[in-house]
Design a binder for these strands. Sequence first.
DNA 1: GTCCATGCAAACTGTTTGCACGCGC
DNA 2: GCGCGTGCAAACAGTTTGCATGGAC
Lengths: 156, 156
Amino acid sequence: MSGCRERLRELFKARGLRLTPQRLLVLEVLEESDKHLDAEAVHEMVRMRDQDISLATVYRTLMLFKEMGLVEEHRLGEGHSHYEAVGGGPHYHFTCLSCGRVIEFDLPSLVTVERDLERRLDATIVEAHLHMMGYCDRCRNGRVGEGDRVHEASKA
Amino acid sequence: MSGCRERLRELFKARGLRLTPQRLLVLEVLEESDKHLDAEAVHEMVRMRDQDISLATVYRTLMLFKEMGLVEEHRLGEGHSHYEAVGGGPHYHFTCLSCGRVIEFDLPSLVTVERDLERRLDATIVEAHLHMMGYCDRCRNGRVGEGDRVHEASKA
DNA sequence: GTCCATGCAAACTGTTTGCACGCGC
DNA sequence: GCGCGTGCAAACAGTTTGCATGGAC
């Protein structure tokens, strides 16, 4: 973890950026959570450790991290964004149209598809978002009540 | 086209909805354009035929059409939505990170992937959005100037 | 000491809603 | 004529920005 922090510090220095406590906190929160957090949620969690952090700073930090490639932004059809620290984990999403649950999954075969498409379009593909929607196991059978519209992102 | 309109009329009547000139215009505009239009663009184009249509009506109509399955909504990473009349055409999107061009493409093999995932998650999949990002042929070679951030949706 | 980063509040964008009137059925 | 659909303007949510102060380097 402290090794990580060293690399971070260099990453920032290289760009003439400063590694402030606020920025560290935002990154920590994102790395510790395996859920998709929206800006508001990040703000709340960060505030539990530092009362005085502002929502604007959270937004600025998330945008910065996105540009630096440390964080990914997802728009899963709702009116706002969710953020996730980039890591080895699965990168695609399934949303249940009934209970709102978000399930992450991996799909190695999509890489083949990417290669295919690159050739067809003569393009370079940098990123792929796959978003499936439908009804999850819980809702197909026992049907759970709506309302727990949480991004629990159970890894599959 | 008038046959289409007849089917429409029945679709609406079945739900106790009214087929107003405003609703017809919105649908016409979406069907005539092969681009992805955002609400504002639809509003502008509709206004060329009826000055008095309001943006609120456009939004309400788009939402209604989405629920009826006549129109699809896409959020391609920008802060707002784009709409497209559903048709036989390709359904997936590639966005060029340099010039902003959006290219639509088809990908029949994704259906196999869907089946796979349904089994793995024990879920029913209703819809799939695939959004690739990278650099298009024009930008990889000749590099076009940024700025023409249009949704031209060249079919591939 | 320099200059980037922050907090605050106000601005802004895209979208939704309340309400009285108008028009399709 | 009944009641859905409309236009208008105001409300709303999420996000961005201007500015003076504060803190990393």
